[in-house]
Design a protein around this nucleic acid. Structure first.
Lengths: 225, 225
DNA sequence: CTTGACAGGTGTACATCGTACACCTAGGCT
DNA sequence: AGCCTAGGTGTACGATGTACACCTGTCAAG
């Protein structure tokens, strides 16, 4: 008689893991209920026994990643601790490109998400920052707390036209948008590929902000008027 | 004989205006091809004669708003000009709440969008900022260039539980997330509603960043090592 | 040992969405 | 007069999220 290898029963963690794996492989758009179910060899509706709805699914995916943050818990306090946490977040963000759009379109907030914010805020407070200054800092850091800089410049969608066309486009750009063109050219002299070093920009801004707040604190800034 | 009042033929601008009006009234999710078509008393497929696809539609909606920026063209140069542009963007952003998610999920970049970035970058350059410093500034300002601060704290989804439950939740929050709770309480002492003054935070961070860059420039910073 | 509740997987069905494709029709040109 | 074409129509398809009824194996209580 044929013995079916019995499938271990699903649980929330396995569902989320499958969704994360799928997103890593094929992007966030590929994460549909049906696709995740197929990944697990199960019918779509089975997922709803472990997940409220699609929104809960991607919320759970985010949580899964956040819980994997490699954060040196016994790290130095204050700004350095903040830096460590944010860099840990960024590492994970780079590993999972779908994470950014996922967080950006998020609606509900989970305990895991709040806990991460609490840890960052706590590091400021532990370093003697006033509550209000910490508040400002959290706002200023914004999404950087999740490891990404919300760029004004997005990746160009990789439309490599013929070299001749490219020349014409460049000329048009240079006359119509001289400033961004100047920046692009300057960046290209520094980086053969012409792409910005996003990682360097991230650190630059992070340091700029952390320094600015350290300066305010040192100057005795406590709270807004 | 019955004389049908002849409908003026559609054009791209009318389609976009209808979509913007609909989004203003009912949110971005309500903007489907079918809904916009209905708004115009036309069949869904008619829109495709004026718009490539849905992505082009929302791109066009964004352009429509950007083109309406009330930017004092003969404004002071430099940081003040940047401030003016960004504040103009923010005004429009507050008028159209759908704008933020629309921009965030954007994929293609339109000339109108590039022109706005070019104007901001140009203001820095005109003020004597080096190209590279301008580049950094654009990255640091990130989405703030579009008028929004990408907050770590999002609006709570307005779940007002019973006062008793609220009390219990607060107590739990205070022990589990002491830092964010401290911030929330502190903010509440300053603002009866307990909500952050997002507008004030926006200005605070904008000033912080612009000051930081002004300081770098004054110190003779020209380009990264 | 029986029974029955319940956790968990199944199957069908539906509304909504974007959009491909073929079609029709009214104006304006040659 | 004849035709081209811009612009609106109609039908249809595949994908998606998810409601609802159903089945089934496990395990604890009687």
């Amino acid at each position: 008689m044929v013995v079916e290898t019995k499938r271990a029963p699903l649980d929330r963690a396995r569902v989320l893991a499958a969704a994360v794996a799928l997103a890593d492989r094929s992007g966030l758009d590929a994460v549909s209920m049906r696709a995740v179910a197929a990944e697990l060899g199960v019918v779509p509706m089975a997922l709803y026994k472990h997940v409220d709805d699609k929104d809960d699914l991607v919320g759970g995916m985010i949580d899964t990643v956040i819980e994997g943050y490699d954060v040196p818990d016994a790290a130095p306090a204050g700004a350095d601790q903040v830096r460590a946490r944010i860099r840990a977040a960024r590492t994970e963000l780079l590993r999972h490109p779908w994470l950014r759009p996922a967080i950006e379109t998020r609606s509900r907030r989970t305990p895991t998400v709040i806990a991460h914010m609490d840890a960052v805020a706590g590091a400021f407070l532990a370093d003697g920052y006033s509550v209000d200054l910490t508040h400002h800092a959290m706002h200023a850091l914004g999404h950087r707390i999740w490891g990404f800089s919300p760029e004004a410049f997005e990746e160009p969608p990789a439309t490599p036209p013929s070299p001749a066309e490219q020349e014409a486009i460049m000329r048009m750009m240079a006359t119509r948008y001289p400033s961004v063109t100047a920046i692009a050219i300057d960046a290209a002299t520094r980086n053969a590929s012409g792409a910005c070093d996003d990682d360097a920009e991230f650190d630059f801004t992070l340091d700029l902000l952390l320094d600015a707040f350290a300066r305010l604190r040192a100057a005795g800034w406590v709270s807004r008027a």
